[in-house]
Amino acid sequence: MKKTVFLGALTIAGLAAGAAAAATLDDVKARGKLNCGVTTGLVGFAAPNANGEWEGFDVAVCRAVAAATLGDPTAVEFVPTTGKTRFTALASGEIDMLARNTTWTFSRDNDLKFEFVGVNYYDGQGFMVPKELGVSSAKELDGATVCIQTGTTTELNLADFFRSNNISYEPVPIETNAEAQQQYLAGACDVYTTDASGLAATRATFEDPSAHALLPEIISKEPLGPLVRHGDNEWGDIVRWTLNAMITAEELGVTSANVADMAANGTDNPEINRLLGTEGTLGEMIGLEADWAKNAIMAVGNYGEVFEGNIGESTPIGLARGLNAQWTEGGLMYSPPFR
């Protein structure tokens, strides 16, 4: 009965730790940790490894922000969220930012009052089918059973796609990616649909990935990016420009290997110098140390390194850069200048 003390002590601890006011940056600094919302497990984007450390593409964004604000990429508390819980967790201040391959849509931005700070992965919804079915186009899927992960934009896109093509289907809504895989592999559904990157990541874990094909149709635009609450523009700027710093770094050839050298010795490219804080006062303007971007890049690498290390062609997931190449190479990754 005396365990009410748990409650008492926890309440005190919770109140002390909480106090999420408008200034998210101050909270993060006071706490010494960044609370970052991620998925419950999607290999390549965010998943804990065998040692319980979170790894992945979205995780790198969290770590970069932590390195920029706190100087320590490990000062991140990863909060696993489901499709349902992610927005409330962010709205209620339980997390400071959400990096959970979340699609930037009009209603999420305006109705749910969130601020998408940018796009870290340009995605689109695709279909995966077993090759033995002999399907080569999504329009041949009339009457098929389709596994979808619930709580995402994919259910709505799917309904729209099949309705506009006037074909029928049986939706099977599934809570987690792992369960979707189980159903799909057992043949309980003919098709698995989610973001094309997620499909590739899922296929990578299969026993025989080559027996499954991704259909050519991409039925939606899914710009995935980190988001923060409406109303705290300073914090939004920090997350936005950390992401931009990673993208600019790749464009300018700054990598985790050479960033320390460049920062110490300076370069003859003024934009690199501004980025790394050796020239100008960009850090001060954003309310951080001068070397904020250097810390972020040193911790996780530039955008290209993060991509290659987590989901690129050298990893089991094997995604090509495609739309996510730098604008100079025909992609859409385009950071505003650091000036």
Partner: peptide, 9 residues
């Protein structure tokens, strides 16, 4: 409590 909640927030 699931999809409607998710989609409408």
């Amino acid at each position: 409590g699931g999809i409607t909640l998710n989609q409408t927030g």
